[in-house]
Amino acid sequence: MSILVLIRLTLRELSSKVTMYILAGISTLVLLGLALAVSVDSMADGEVLKLFGQQVSPPVPLEELAKAVQQMQAGLAGGLFTGIILFGVFATAGVIPDMLERGTVDLYISKPISRWELLLGKYCGAVAAIGLNIIYFLAGAWLVFGLRCGVWDINLLLSALTMTFMFAALYAMVVFFGTWTRSTAASIILTYLYLFILGGILHNRELTLYLISENAVYRGVIDGFYYLFPQISGMQENGAKQIMQVEMDWKPFLQSFFSGSVFFLAAAVILKRRDF
């Protein structure tokens, strides 16, 4: 019950922020552009996919056109993926620090709700806001490809779930930074630091951190860190696989779920112990 109230409150908070409008606006522009740019033409030797009037796929029989469209959809989803990571984190990183601000946190904690429920409600609210944006974009893209190319691919719609899951795993980390530092700017910087630097180093640990020492304990610790963080690139690959109808790898799902739980729990512990 309280969780629902908190989710609504968070959605309202985010819908008052200009960053969310920018996010929705960019999505709309890309969809409109896509609707204008993409088309299917019949040639003598088969069907071709065109982008801005330029042929982007070899002529194929109509039954095989779907493959070419999937290719394009996967590329688009990859773009969305990056956009969500960049803008989504940026737009929602303030949710927890804002709640924990002096004078506001008192209002929340003095209500008959436990602190972890507050955190969960805000977490779900922010994930829901981004999830809605993802669904908006992918449902739009699904319509565009269906109407313009005649390819109605349910996997494109389903990939919204994969992508929202990925954001949820990432956002648990943002919530942790937000609870710990109580600063929006610091949360964004720390999250980007992971996404752009630490994440890459850990992912390629065989080529980087492993070279420092051959000590098994050291490498174990490095591995531990790797699995502690959300598996962003693994999830990104899964998103593309889903659209291309290739079997997904379940490990990134499991690891991201684990990582999200750990970060959320750590945030809840920090919040529980803090004096306001």
Partner: peptide
Amino acid sequence: SRVRRRVGYLPENHRFPAYL
């Protein structure tokens, strides 16, 4: 936390979310 159903509180220098 349940006991706070029956308790009210006006904090010093409170700040309601400005968007409401």
